[in-house]
């Protein structure tokens, strides 16, 4: 296009030139945007399948995910499929691993222990879900607020979280439960969850403080990106490994505390859970008689197993936040996708 050579005469040409210039500046992309359904599919592939693949290729992750899946299955399908345990279903204190009918033996009134376990699982998972989420949300929110606002707000928030951290968690729960004994498992989880946000809040705050000083955030702020975006993009992303570990650790604490509280008999028996089972076993069985101990041992084993599942998954999840590993898996997934896509074409 030679506009300068020929500035006046040929209007058509110059219009064309103008259009081409306009075209250059306005062109968005030559690549066709894939249809929405495919975008969605891609999102699922990159955000769900690729991380999941990393998770289960790690042996710890595989075991952890398997344990968690088993527990979720018990809490959903199991509850629906298996009947409630009934008294006098069999001889009291039938030992475990003797018959298929009572694989885990029976309790003091002849209740089937495996059914007790299954029907106590939903409450356990509810504790963990609500407690873990509450603790994590509180910790991150308070940490981000303190770190970003600074000044008096920062001081007050940190004072509160320091106070919270200085009170031994179980003691605080005991005191709270003396005023408020929640019945719904979600509320119990909530009550337990509010004890474990202190450490996460401190950590998030210091991460915010350090990220705030970094060059890329400086640049993002100069570019006028909203704070919300910066926090999500830099702070939370950097904190993800820490949050996962914290979430696992909080869940562990919540399981321990919940079972402990029911075992102590501090909380009212409103839902079947492993702590209630342990308390009943502890109070009704003769612990010097080895033939009765299994009622107490089995829920303990289940609880250890669930905790182990959470911890192993969290340890393996650490790898999911390894950007390079994730990119490789995403690429692999893409390859797989194109491969399957070309097959019908042939």
């Amino acid at each position: 296009m030679s506009r300068s050579e020929d500035p006046v005469t040929d209007g058509g040409q110059s219009r064309e030139a103008a259009r081409s210039a306009e075209d250059i500046f306005n062109r968005v992309s030559d690549i066709e945007r894939p249809p929405r359904s495919q975008q969605l599919l891609e999102g699922v592939r990159n955000r769900v399948l690729a991380p999941l693949k990393i998770l289960i290729t790690d042996p710890r992750g595989a075991v952890g995910v398997a344990i968690l899946a088993f527990n979720v299955a018990m809490a959903t399908l199991g509850v629906w499929f298996f009947p409630q345990p009934s008294s006098l279903a069999a001889e009291p204190y039938t030992p475990p691993f003797q018959s298929l009918e009572y694989p885990l033996g029976t309790a003091s009134l002849g209740q089937e222990i495996h059914l007790q376990i299954i029907h106590a699982t939903p409450a356990m998972l509810k504790f963990v879900i609500s407690g873990g989420i509450v603790a994590t949300l509180l910790g991150v929110t308070i940490g981000v607020t303190a770190g970003y606002k600074g000044g008096v707000i920062d001081y007050v928030l940190m004072l509160i979280s320091d106070t919270w951290m200085s009170i031994p968690a179980l003691v605080l729960i005991l005191i709270i439960s003396s005023f408020w004994s929640p019945r719904d498992p979600y509320l119990v989880g909530l009550m337990l969850g509010i004890n474990f946000w202190g450490g996460l809040a401190r950590m998030t705050r210091s991460e915010v403080l350090s990220v705030r000083e970094s060059n890329k955030v400086e640049a993002a702020r100069v570019m006028g990106l909203p704070t919300r975006y910066i926090i999500r993009k830099y702070v939370i992303k950097n904190l993800m490994p820490y949050i996962t570990v914290n979430l696992a650790n909080n869940s562990r604490q919540i399981i321990f505390a919940a079972v402990g509280l029911y075992f102590l008999g501090v909380l009212p028996y409103t839902s079947a859970n492993w702590g209630v089972m342990m308390d009943q076993a502890y109070n009704n069985s003769n612990l010097t008689n080895m033939g009765q101990v299994h009622w107490l041992i089995i829920p303990m084993v289940m609880m250890i197993l669930l905790t182990l599942g959470i911890i192993l998954t969290a340890q393996a999840a650490d790898k999911m936040f390894n950007v390079r590993l994730l990119a490789r898996e995403q690429a692999d997934e893409d390859e797989g996708a194109t491969a399957t896509a070309t097959i019908p074409g042939n």
């Binding site: 562990r252 321990f256 079972v259 402990g260 075992f263 502890y282 612990l287 101990v293 107490l296 303990m300 609880m303 250890i304 905790t307 182990l308 911890i311 192993l312 340890q315």
Partner: peptide
């Protein structure tokens, strides 16, 4: 040690007691 982290003090206590 990892396994140990999954065992709360009171379970250890019950087992020791028994």
């Amino acid at each position: 040690t990892v396994t140990n982290e999954t065992i709360p003090g009171y379970i250890a206590a019950i087992i020791l007691l028994i």
